[in-house]
Amino acid sequence: MMIALSFLLSFYGFLHFAMSVKKHHMDIYKGWYQAKPLSQREYWVMQAIAWLAMTASFYCAVVIWGIGIGSMAWLMLITVSALLVVALFSYRLQWFKWLWRYTCLGHKFAPPELKSSIDHRSR
């Protein structure tokens, strides 16, 4: 249970890390509406969330395994969750978008309803 939590937290952190990179940010928003470059404020918010999530995930790992084994196991855990993020990003961009929209701050930064209505009008 704790392991799953630790994994999900690190996955969540990596989602935000990925989105705080300009190129990926553009990739994600490209299909939604006229892409808006990542603002400085957004960048810092995402970084903060990501680091918080990573810290929490590390804390969980330490609780489960203790500091010695925990730090090693955690490093492997985040390796796998980062690989998952990369796989999603490269092969299942739609799923990534969905996750971003509904579980993260996707709404805040680019409300999907608004964007889709713009899309419809322009068509």
Binding site: V21, K22, V85, V86, A87, F89, Y91
Partner: peptide, 9 residues
């Protein structure tokens, strides 16, 4: 870091 998640298939 900027290419951290980059996998251009």
């Amino acid at each position: 870091f900027s290419d951290f998640f980059m996998f251009r298939t």
